[in-house]
Every structure is written in C-alpha cells, then in structure tokens.
Amino acid sequence: MTSKVFSSFAEAIYDIGDGATIAIGGFGGSVGMAQNLILALRDKGSKDLTLISNTGGLCELSLGGFIAGTYVDHAILFQNKQVKKMIGSYLGSPSPTTLSSLEKQWQAGEVEVETLPQGTLSARMLAGGAGYGGIYIPTGVGTIVEKGKEKRIIHGKEYILEFPLKPEFAFVRAYKADTTGNLIYRLAARNMNPIAAKAASVTIVEVDEIVDPGGLDPDIIVTPGIYVHRMVKIPKGGKK
C-alpha cells in the first residue's frame, strides 16, 4: 500500500496547480484551520484558485479571542493575489471600519464571490461527497439567495434546489490520525473539516499526531480513512 504520510507540506500539495478548486476546513480563527498547508500553498504560488470555506479569511483582523497576525488562514492567499473566486458564507470583514483583502479585491473587480447561507455551504459539500445530485433547502426562500434557482413546494413548504460542490482538493486540520487515514478532531476544531474531507477528490490533512493502525479506537473515528489521501504530521515549530 502506498503510504498516505508525506514528509512535508510542500510535497503534499505538489499537484495543486493554477485554477485548482480547494475546500478549506475551519470555521473562523485558528481553530481547525490547516495553517501549514495554506502557508505551503502561498509559497507554491498557484494562481486563479477557487476557494471554498466559511469565511473569506480573517487572520488580518482581530475577532473575538483571535488577534490579527497571530495565526494564518486563506487571507494570505488573497494578499498574494492567488484567488480568482471565493465561495463561502461569512465573506466580509467583521470590522465596520477595516476591509479584508478579499473585500478590497472584490471591490476592485479582481475576485468573484458567491455568498451562501452557512448551512447551505455545508449541505452542498455534503451533496458533493455523498453523491447527491442536489438538495432542497428551506434557507434563503424569499431572499436574494433564491435568485436564479429552481424552487419547489414540498409538503406545503417552499424549498430551493442547491447543487453539489465537489472541490478537487481539501485542506483539513485534524488532531490524531492513524496511517490508514482515519481521523479524529478536538472539540470545536472539527467544524467543517469532516465535510471538506468527504467532498474533495484529494483530501490533504495536517495533524498533531500519526499513530499505527489500531492506535485509534474504531468507535471514535470521525473521518474514516477512505476520505483521506495525504497526511503530514505538524513538526515542532509548525503553526498550531
């Protein structure tokens, strides 16, 4: 069996070229964010990327318990002008006075944006990973979200047809893995990671610890190894 364990982040993303579509797990802030893979992609410099993630990148701005500049997320890919399109939910800056890099590039017409309700974003990735042709969702009925979309009344209630998202790659942050790719996460660091892992053709994971098969109780596996293709153990000094 070819090993899923890679020795560096750069090697694990070797085939992410210009125009690739990447789902990035995480929710906001550093919790569950694959910071080291994002740094490697910034260094690789692939352009015209389409990103799928909850936020449009927040690491330039302080939010809640997170201080600007103390961690990394996909905002650095906007800073480096690598992104063509962003699909997400919370895409604006949380600050009423400071714009994010994404917002500035969007205002300048350099980046295309698709804003979705957060649950719809997850459900569309689920559809992508689970092989559904689409999902009827009540969220967004009567709002601009329904614009241009097919609607249907089911059991007396209105729904919007939303189509699957199937990214080529996913960046996932896990807590522990075994070498077959089974993953567990820690607390709120799970968030969108299992959904991104399931949706993508190639799922790339950064993880605190990799153990031998049998080192994780099968009853507690959250992401089965079938969804995981490449893993890198976060080295000493890596972003956590």
Binding site: S89, Y90, L91, L116, P117, Q118
Partner: peptide
C-alpha cells in the same frame, strides 16, 4: 460584501 453566516438558517 455582507455576511450571511448562520443567520438565514
């Protein structure tokens, strides 16, 4: 740009 987040759901 606006932030839908979880509000609509």
């Amino acid at each position: 740009i606006g932030n839908i987040g979880g509000a609509m759901d």
